[in-house]
Amino acid sequence: MNRLFDEFFGRTLTRGEEFERMRSPNVDVSETKDNILVTVEIPGMTKDDIKVTVRDNILTLSGEKKQEKEEKDANYHRIERSYGSFCRSFELPTTVQFDKVKAGYKDGILKITLPKSEEVKLKEIPINIS
C-alpha cells in the first residue's frame, strides 16, 4: 500500500541505463621510503572483478562492479551508488621495480605496492654537511 502511494507521489525511483556507468573511483598515490603506494576505493567488489596490469610504465586498473539481480528489480528510495565498469591508468616513474609489483583487496580498498628500484633508494642516503 505504501509503495502504491509512493509511486503515485513520484517518490519511488528505478535504476535506468544512466546508472550503468560507474563513477571513477577515488585514487590516492603516495610515497614511502621503499615504495610507491596506489590506493583505490572500490567497495562492493570481489577480487575476480578487478584487473591490475602494468605495461611499459603504464599502470592500468580496471574492473566491473556488478549489481545483484534482486536489487535491480527493487523499488528505490535513494540512489547514490553507481555500478558498471571503470578504468584508470597512471604513468609510473621508471624508477619502479615493475616485476615486483604487488596488489591486494581488503575492506573495499585495492592497494598496489610498487617497490622503488635500489638505485633510487641509494640516492636517498643523507649527507652530513660539515
Partner: peptide
C-alpha cells in the same frame, strides 16, 4: 559515503559504501 535505499517485498535495505573503515 554513497548510499542506496531500496525495498524488496520483505525488507527495507540501506547500503552504504564505506571503504577503508573497520
Amino acid at each position: 559515503p554513497d548510499m542506496d535505499i531500496f525495498e524488496t517485498d520483505k525488507d527495507f535495505v540501506i547500503e552504504a559504501e564505506i571503504p577503508g573503515v573497520s
